[in-house]
Nucleic acid binder design. Structure first.
Length: 290
DNA sequence: GGCTTTGTTTTATA
DNA sequence: GTATAAAACAAAGC
């Protein structure tokens, strides 16, 4: 579940490893991942020879800038993650046959970008929910999805009162759902939403118009600190997430509530409960989260 | 083989 | 139109 800290870690890794490289070719065995352009051969033709100029994060989205104002936009959704390596290629010209790589990195590589220096960036995704779009910079940033993203959870420009206004503007919705709503605040997913609310001692079911001043403060503060802490640990690899070198993050070892149903609360010892909010599993302590 | 999983989009409802 | 909830969708592991 790549959320803000995982996507952030990936972006830092990509900057280190693929910035300034020239695209030589691309490969896929699952064209459904690629939402644009519709024609894979066009995609291939157009991206060949372009240089990776920079990589940025927008919420949970990875934006790779290429020369000539082109952009490769990747959303890893649930189980996607990007790997960078110099694996051996089966055959040249590249990407003939079933898969592009002679050694098996893992069984779930569905998209590969090969660079002129022999390195590769591979998208691994068991569930194949990831989304890839290749288009003009203007079109990508003009898209509804990116334009309607709320301020980044780690946006230094967002102060407490702005945060409060965003939440309060959604009156009746439950706080957990607002934290998960990318149009309100961007970057938070199911794991961090549960963890932030536990830290703040606020129930995930609490309606937005019922949250007190000091609780806003706590949610705001712990949102920032938890996300930063996780970035410092290289993200959360409880599920499929890996960094670009294939290594695990460590945040999964520090969960206070997520996936801890019926285990004792670290604060008060009560049993952690799991309920569904908006169809998502939500973990919380019924005793000390009010 | 039905249930679960998440992030996002789409549809329905008040 | 707005706010919110529910359902749908992507695919595969168990």
């Amino acid at each position: 579940m790549p959320e803000l800290p995982e996507v952030h870690t990936t972006v830092l890794g990509l900057r280190k490893k693929i910035k300034n490289l020239i695209v030589k070719d691309i490969w896929t065995d699952h064209k459904k991942l690629i939402k644009k352009p519709a024609d894979f051969n066009l995609f291939k033709k157009d991206i060949r020879g372009r240089k990776i100029e920079n990589i940025e994060r927008r919420g949970k989205n990875i934006i790779i800038f290429l020369s000539g104002n082109k952009v490769l936009w990747i959303h890893q959704k649930m189980t996607g993650h990007l790997l960078v390596g110099a694996w051996e290629i089966k055959s040249t010209p590249v990407f003939l046959g079933k898969g592009p790589l002679s050694e098996k990195i893992n069984g779930h590589i569905h998209f590969v970008v090969l660079f002129s220096n022999g390195k590769m960036m591979a998208l691994s995704d068991v569930r194949k929910f990831s989304k890839i779009i290749y288009s003009d910079k203007k079109e990508v940033f003009g898209s509804k999805e990116l334009k309607s993203l709320g301020p980044d959870a780690l946006d230094g420009g967002m102060n407490l009162s702005e945060f409060k206004n965003i939440i309060k503007g959604r009156k009746k919705a439950r706080i957990k759902q607002i934290l998960l709503n990318q149009e309100a605040i961007s970057g938070i997913g199911n794991i961090y939403a549960d963890e932030i609310l536990w830290k703040a001692s606020v129930s995930p079911e609490r309606p937005a118009n019922n949250i007190k001043k000091d609780e806003f403060k706590k949610i705001f503060f712990f949102m920032k600190s938890l996300l930063k802490t996780s970035i410092g640990m290289g993200g959360d690899s409880m599920s499929d997430y890996r960094n670009v070198s294939g290594g695990k993050g460590a945040y999964q070892n520090h969960h206070r509530v997520y996936k801890r149903k019926d285990k004792p609360c670290y604060r008060c010892g009560s049993k952690i409960r799991r309920i569904k909010i908006g169809g998502r599993s939500s973990h919380f302590c019924p005793q000390c989260q009010k």
